[in-house]
Simulated scan of single mutants.
Amino acid sequence: MTDISEYDRGLPRKRVAAGMLSFDDKGQVLLVDPVYKEPWKIPGGAVEADESPRAAAQREVKEELGLTTEPGRLLGIDWTAERPGRSEGIVMIFDGDQLHPGTIKTIQLDPTELRAYAFVPLDQLDSKLIPNLARRVRTCTHAHTQGTTTNMENGTPAT
């Protein structure tokens, strides 16, 4: 990192994560079951130092699923409040679009990261995801179908 000003060093820091929202040919959402936490999530993770959120989403999908997928447009950006064990953060979700059945067959899970993956109907998100993430996925799925980008706070569109 380059030398930064005293002013910049004094600014608050936020956790930043990025993910990719992908679908099968039935419009179901790709979710993954991580070995290091409960419950399920979408493919993605922390943005590393000197890495763009788009590059982080692409890297995480490659690491977790073995897929080299170019992230599409930004579907949503979500500010998440502090919660037990987590600081506040910013999460960016990119469009992974519809995965071709042939691409789905090439998924190779990294066993150090994931137990499983599944394509889940939108009406079953609440049984797999924490409430904030379920709201975020529904909001970003709507943005995907509408061709929009949504600003959110805790998974709810900000007004």
Score class of each variant (00 low, 15 high):
D3Q: 12
G10Q: 15
L11P: 12
P12T: 15
P12S: 12
R13S: 11
R15P: 05
R15Q: 14
A18H: 02
M20Q: 14
L21D: 12
D24M: 02
D24W: 08
G27P: 08
L30I: 01
L31A: 03
L31N: 04
V32A: 10
V35Q: 13
E38N: 03
E38C: 00
K41A: 01
P43W: 01
A46T: 08
A46G: 05
D50F: 00
E51K: 00
P53A: 04
R59C: 08
E63W: 04
E63M: 04
G66W: 04
G66N: 06
T69I: 10
L74W: 08
L74E: 13
G76C: 04
T80H: 00
A81M: 02
R83N: 07
R83C: 04
P84Q: 12
G85K: 06
S87H: 10
E88H: 07
I93V: 10
I93N: 08
D97A: 14
Q98H: 13
L99P: 04
L99F: 08
H100V: 05
P101E: 06
I104D: 01
Q108R: 15
Q108T: 15
L109H: 10
D110F: 15
V120I: 14
Q124C: 10
I130T: 11
P131I: 08
N132L: 14
R136W: 08
R136D: 04
T139M: 03
T139K: 00
T141C: 06
A143E: 07
T149A: 14
N151K: 10
N151T: 12
M152H: 11
E153A: 12
T156Y: 11
T159Y: 15
T159K: 15
T159G: 15
